[in-house]
Amino acid sequence: MKKLILIALLALSPLVAQVDEKVEVPYIDFPIKMGKEFATVQGQCLMCHSFGYIINQGPQSRKHWKHIIHKMKVAFKAPISDKDAKIVEDYLVEHYGNGK
């Protein structure tokens, strides 16, 4: 009988999630290099993704960074103005460029 009750209770009990409340993803302060026009870079890039994405690419050519910004605008529809796109490009080339 006890067993039957237990089975009945199990069948009726609502589903319980492993984590039954809001989960929190930690904020990570990726060590991006600081410089002039940082506010623009922060405003444009951080809207959609962490600085981890930038740092992880390693030092790259101007062509590479230009292409990435283009991808953000065209593929992902980030509303970055031409003026800001150039500012971000110059910033990335200055701090994460490889001299090419």
């Binding site: 492993q18 984590v19 989960v23 929190e24 993803v25 930690p26 904020y27 990570i28 990726f30 993704h49 962490s50 981890g52 994405y53 992880n56």
Partner: peptide
């Protein structure tokens, strides 16, 4: 691996927090 832990995860190699990678 990173010092930061994400929900239900042990420390892993961390590329980004937003979105999590």
């Amino acid at each position: 691996v990173s010092k930061n832990t994400f929900p239900e995860k042990r420390p892993l190699i961390t590329y980004s927090d937003r979105p999590p990678l």
